[in-house]
Design a protein around this nucleic acid. Structure first.
Lengths: 312, 312
DNA sequence: ATTCATATTTTGTCCTGGACAAAATGTTGA
DNA sequence: TCAACATTTTGTCCAGGACAAAATATGAAT
């Protein structure tokens, strides 16, 4: 039941897409470390065997976790997998019942039981309310899904399925609560270019809308200049940006500093997500959230510091 | 109110991100056509002035429309803009009242009046019902937004704003109608890798769910093999794939042929979107939709051809 | 005149191997 | 513990040659 004859390996462009490693990087690794060592087709072009691509994927994930290529490239795939396994960060929930529930949900994801997945999430949402649902369920679940993905226990379709279902749930819940347009503060949400993960944004929105904030999301991947311009033109009080674990911290810091300058001093810059936590002290005048639970409290503080104007 | 001193131009990587033109392509154009002609920094690296990047963006859009680089690179930006203007495809709606309504909505997008935008879309949705809303409002509106974007009348944030609002509306509407899990047929929706546009998928879902189909969306960018595997494992009756205008037709055709083979003969392959219309005859055994309006009828035909089994 | 097969041009991607700056790490001294 | 400096690691850039796939032009045959 194989596909066909020739494609017994991937081109360098395909490997770039699959692993996220730039063509230049693939070539320079080969030159320096002797790995990967792709075959060549009749045309002298690289043809990467599947097992080397798998190993590259593992290496990529470990690099994203902060390890360095030279230490990884020589290792066996099994050793790499072990490293990956040791890196799981999600500590099991304190509440064993809740913890078991999460395992069940993860099982639904693994088995593509979208209907069961939808139903269990929906029930939890109904039971806990939007804010607690995000803080107590989605936050840890995301970590678990992320860890599972890291160690290769989940494939692309499973991850997509989870994301879609959560997105549906959150968008519906947010729509139904949409605050009056006069809500305060006015918050602009988005991510930087190259950051595709929309869940963080939605979760933030779900935390803030019930507090009466007026949230406008631009979705993912807004160029820096456009964020600045949109924030000014729309007279927003706060710009909120989210970063997933894979986002290079360097890019985030540079971009945030530049954005911080571009926004007026009256506009708050709130950021969060695994890609940025712990960088707080390097970001003056930027509010860095270690956990999404802090958002409601932060909103309340903002309100105290910015009493509503008399009324226009 | 400029940013700072040094960045009076973009690096080749930044231009790649901004224009979608590969670094190799940028360098080879420079070598062959003498354009772009970037300055060099102290390090000998290319620094592209903003006006050249703007022209590159125009060229890129025209190439996506089927024109060829050699004919474009010599032209003045004004001439390029004219070409772009002549390419608008959306003929004004037959109904003048409706047409005026669309213009109003577009104005809201342009002015970032998210609240008004949301309200007008919501009203139309309520008035027309989900299916007619998608077919009679969103389809033409998408064309208008696409055209405006093409000729540079809309920027990134406006386009994002529109997409987000529509997505919120559609997801909420779909959730509220979600069919019983036993719905037929079982439809798997997704896009190919490198295709980021999710609206087509949502619109398709919105057309099918009210007909009682059981739709599972994987969101955008699922690798081909994963689509095949997911379709088999989930015993889907139909796989639906959508292509935006910018998607290279070649990639779409190749991918679809390969996917067609990979799916069993009992699984339907339904495709649509501006990137694929008109290619129908090159795709045997693939159902190509010229308009999203055809979906409900196609579902009914499918049901006739596949009478429900006795009941398990 | 339309379709089909074959030449020609255009165009994007790949190649090698050298270079260099930014980031990470190691070292030293307060 | 922190700061300043030296060293290594690492990713990205460059030039300029090559080639195959796509697009177009040319010609033959229906």
């Amino acid at each position: 039941m194989n596909t066909s004859l020739p494609p017994s390996g991937l081109s360098i462009a395909a490997v770039e897409r699959d692993t996220g490693l730039a063509k230049d990087t693939l070539r320079v690794w080969e030159r320096r470390y002797g790995f990967p060592a792709p075959a060549r087709d009749s045309n002298g072009e690289r043809v990467y065997p599947a097992d080397q691509v798998d190993k590259l994927r593992l290496i990529r994930r470990l690099i994203d976790q902060g390890l360095r290529p030279a230490k990884l490239i020589g290792l066996e795939p099994t050793a790499l997998s072990e490293l990956l396994g040791g890196l799981g960060t999600a500590q099991p929930s304190a509440d064993p019942a809740r913890s078991a529930q999460f395992e069940t949900i993860l099982k639904f994801v693994r088995l593509h039981l979208h209907e069961d997945l939808r139903r269990s999430l929906q029930q939890l949402l109904m039971k806990l309310g939007l804010q607690r649902f995000v803080g107590e369920v989605l936050a840890p679940l995301n970590m678990m899904v992320g860890d599972a993905w890291l160690r290769g226990e989940l494939e692309v379709p499973e991850e997509h399925l989870y994301t879609e279902q959560v997105q549906n749930l959150l968008r519906a819940a947010i729509s139904s609560q949409a605050a009056a347009s006069a809500g305060r503060p006015r918050v602009l949400l988005t991510t930087f270019p190259d950051e595709q993960h929309a869940l963080g944004l939605l979760m933030a929105e779900a935390m803030m809308v019930p507090e009466g904030a007026c949230c406008i999301s631009l979705g993912t991947q807004t160029p820096l200049d456009d964020i600045r311009n949109a924030a000014r033109a729309g007279r927003f009080d706060i710009v909120a940006v989210s970063f997933s674990a894979a986002f290079p911290a360097r890019l985030a810091l540079d971009g945030l500093r530049s954005l911080r300058e571009g926004l007026g001093p009256d506009t708050g810059l709130w950021v969060g997500g695994a890609g940025i936590t712990g960088q707080a002290r390097k970001l003056p005048n930027v509010q860095v959230f270690a956990s999404i639970d802090e958002l409601p409290e932060a909103l309340r503080s903002w309100r105290e510091a910015h009493p509503a104007p008399d009324r226009a």
